[in-house]
Structures are given as structure tokens and as C-alpha cells.
């Protein structure tokens, strides 16, 4: 139970970071951290199907698609 609380706090920290970073690559990395911790939390709550979906989508695809979109637009938030 304490473990879930620790992981939730870590996820909140990463989410707040994703909101406040001006460097969008750092924000994307924070999003990847949120997805990772969400996957571990689903796993701890005994939902391996959802954890696997979160892992498969969040590990590579979203990060890469965001990075390509940043390459096509601009790196720093104005």
C-alpha cells in the first residue's frame, strides 16, 4: 500500500514536470516517465493486460511520435 503511494507521488512529480518544462524534449521524457510508472501501477493492481498496453504504447511509440513532431515544429515553448 505504501509502495503504491510512493509510486503515485513519483508519477505526480513527473506529470507536474511535463507541464512546467519549457524544453519540450524534457517534457516528452517526463511523459515517458509518467507512462512507465502508470504501467508499474497497473501491474501492482493486478491488471497485466492494461499494463502491457500501456508499456507497448508508452515505451516507444508516443515518445518517438512526439519527438518527430517536435523536430517538425520547434523545441522550446514560447
Amino acid at each position: 500500500m505504501i509502495y503504491i503511494a510512493i509510486l503515485t507521488v513519483a508519477m505526480l512529480i513527473a506529470g507536474v514536470g511535463a507541464y512546467f518544462f519549457r524544453d519540450l524534449i524534457a517534457a516528452v521524457v517526463a511523459c515517458a516517465a509518467v507512462s512507465l510508472i502508470a504501467s508499474v501501477l497497473f501491474y501492482l493492481l493486478q491488471a497485466p493486460d492494461v499494463a502491457m498496453a500501456e508499456a507497448a504504447i508508452g515505451a516507444g511509440l508516443t515518445t518517438a511520435i512526439f519527438v518527430i513532431a517536435i523536430r517538425k515544429t520547434g523545441r522550446y515553448e514560447k
Binding site: 524534449i25 516528452v28 521524457v29 515517458a32 512507465l36 504501467s39 501491474y43 497485466p48 499494463a51 502491457m52 508499456a55 507497448a56 515505451a59 516507444g60 515518445t63 518517438a64 519527438v67 518527430i68 517536435i70 523536430r71
Partner: peptide, 24 residues
């Protein structure tokens, strides 16, 4: 034992995001 598949997915795919940022 079937829960190991989740860890396997993350182990196989986890480096692709890092590779994307590195290529950027």
C-alpha cells in the same frame, strides 16, 4: 508466470524511446 510477459514487453521496447531522443 504469465505476468512475466509485461516485463518482457518493457525490456524489449524500452530502449526505442531513448533511441528516438538520441537520434533527435
Amino acid at each position: 508466470q504469465v505476468y512475466l510477459d509485461v516485463a518482457l514487453v518493457y525490456a524489449v521496447l524500452g530502449f526505442i524511446g531513448v533511441l528516438a531522443v538520441a537520434r533527435y
